[in-house]
Design a protein around this nucleic acid. Structure first.
Length: 481
RNA sequence: GGCCGGUUGGUCAAGCGGUUAAGACGCCGCCCUCUCACGGCGGAAACAAGGGUUCGAUUCCCUUACCGGCUACCA
């Protein structure tokens, strides 16, 4: 039975790199009808952010990634929050076992001593612990412990030989043990480090596939040392390429504007965000890009994940979001777009459904709506030169004449719907010996003040209604006179 | 600096020894058209470099270059 987990740290909003890791974990589990688990890794008290767990829950819920097990749904291997597991003494117990076995040792080195171990190369600091405390006798350790000296527990990495581990994506990776540091297992505040807690929890919780970003690739050999020391079975590693920002750096919370919540605020649909991130580092065989979560579950194959990093391209996300809008049920779009429409066009006499439908095929995010529909609320200031259009054979002078003559027609027009209005203007043009554009262009400009509008003159008139249309035509006549 | 990984158009990304090197986004042009948008058609645009291996390398190996990650009592 496949069991995957998503194990975020509650340190703020969730950027798309994390979201994708969650998504891939979810897809692997679902594809195999396995279990997807959520675990909260709050071992760093410094970085803990109040409310961040709520953000994680909300993000997963909105993205549609429901966990089968987690803090809110016990699956029998809890607790699912690491700080609670610390209280239960879980990590300490295993760390002490390693100490007894000789695979780990107590270290009482002070900050100052560690500082003295630092070497500076190219302005950057590097430390390599020298196993100083490994030589402490059992008595010395007991004495220090009894004296209440602060300590950490370190892994005793062999100085000779090499360690090889296997990753589904990157194959076998071998590293000289001399390169591996005696990493800290238990910090002086009693909390485990990420690397240690991960191994313990993944084993205890029965995780079969570990999905994570490839930034952990270089610390993975140490994991094997841990698994071997405990005699535990090593899970399947699935390291994913990183998602990069425009500057080609790892997306992080610091980059800003790239978290799931940021994107929602920028007017994107959760489904589109999920769909897009799925394609950053993976692709289905069949070239289909627009996929529902269920289709992703069906098609996802973790052995086909890419190795190289991917740049997050907001332009393509915009396109994809637009595709979702175009394929969306009009009523569903209307409901989500309504707040944006109401803000841009407060006039209640205009048909909101018609406005929504006008926007649906023309915007890429909800935030594009105000710019697109704003003129319905108020005609923006414009130059009379806007009435000049070569292809339409329209000029400001001709426009004035057309508007003056069509005004009474509009006033007496009874059926104020698109088709009727279009017919009326078309026959008006015919009677006057004008081209269609010579009538449509001035009318559309007069009621919108815009070079381009969503929909043609007649559509605009219909939504504006007779009173408002007439008012705007009159204002335009004044402007041109 | 050391270690690990990566390198196909601007971006995502097929390809897994023999191809006119897919497709998508973006960009440009044309068509459709009451302006847009949608839609349709077309275009420009790539195998980092050098050595091998091979009858034949984008595909396999090595070197170099470049990019990235790690090198924390952060994850």
């Amino acid at each position: 039975m496949v069991k995957t987990r998503f194990a975020p740290s509650p340190t703020g909003r969730m950027h798309v790199g994390n979201l994708r890791t969650a998504l891939y974990s979810y897809l692997i589990a679902r594809h195999d009808h396995g279990v997807f688990m959520l675990r909260i890794e709050d071992t760093d008290q410094e970085r803990y952010v109040e409310g961040a767990v709520d953000i994680i829950n909300r993000t997963l819920a909105e993205a549609g990634l429901k966990a089968d097990e987690g803090p809110d749904k016990d699956g029998g291997v809890g607790p699912y929050v690491q700080s609670e597991r610390v209280k239960a003494g879980i990590y300490r117990k295993y760390a002490e076992q390693l100490v007894e076995q000789g695979n780990a040792y107590y270290c009482f080195c002070t900050k100052e001593r560690l500082e003295s171990l630092k070497t500076v190369v190219d302005g950057k600091e590097y430390t390599a612990y020298d196993k100083h405390c490994l030589s402490l006798t059992k008595e010395e350790v007991e004495r220090n412990l009894a004296a209440g000296m602060p300590y950490v527990i370190r892994l005793n990495v062999p100085t000779e030989g090499s360690t090889t581990f296997h990753d589904v994506n990157y194959g076998d990776i071998t590293v000289d043990n001399a390169e591996l540091e005696d990493m800290i297992l238990i910090k002086s505040d009693g909390y485990p480090t990420y690397n240690f807690a991960n191994v313990i929890d993944d084993h205890l919780m029965g995780v079969t596939h570990v999905v994570r970003g490839k930034e952990y690739l270089s610390s993975s050999p140490k994991y094997n040392l841990l698994y071997e020391a405990f005699g535990w079975e090593i899970p399947v590693y699935v390291h994913c390429p990183l998602i990069m920002d425009e500057e080609h750096h790892k997306l992080s919370k610091r980059s800003g504007h790239s978290s799931f919540e940021d994107l929602l605020e920028q007017g994107f649909l959760p489904e589109a965000i999920v769909n897009y991130t799925a394609l950053l580092g993976w692709n289905p065989q069949d070239n289909q890009e627009i996929m529902t979560l269920d289709e992703l579950i069906d098609k996802f194959d973790y052995t086909r994940i890419n190795k190289s990093d991917a740049v997050f391209d907001i332009a393509k996300l915009r396109w994809m979001n637009g595709e979702y809008f175009r394929n969306m049920d009009p009523e569903a779009f209307y409901e989500k777009a309504l707040p944006y429409i109401e803000a841009a066009v407060p006039e209640t006499f205009m048909d909101r459904h018609a406005l929504a439908e006008m926007a649906r095929t023309r915007v890429e995010t909800f935030c594009d709506i105000p710019e697109l529909l704003g003129f319905f609320h108020e005609v923006p200031p414009y130059e009379t030169e806007m009435y000049r259009h070569k292809k339409m054979k329209s000029t400001p002078e001709l426009s004035l004449t057309v508007l003056k003559e069509i005004l009474p027609c509009l006033e007496k027009q009874e059926a104020f719907d698109n088709d009727s209005l279009y017919e009326m203007m078309k026959s008006f043009a015919e009677e006057k010996g004008l081209k269609n554009g010579q009538v449509m262009w001035p009318v559309r400009t007069a009621v919108s003040g815009k070079q381009t509008t969503p929909g043609g003159a007649s559509q605009l008139l219909e939504i504006l209604g007779k009173d408002e249309s007439v008012r705007r035509i009159r204002a335009a006549i004044d402007l041109l006179s």
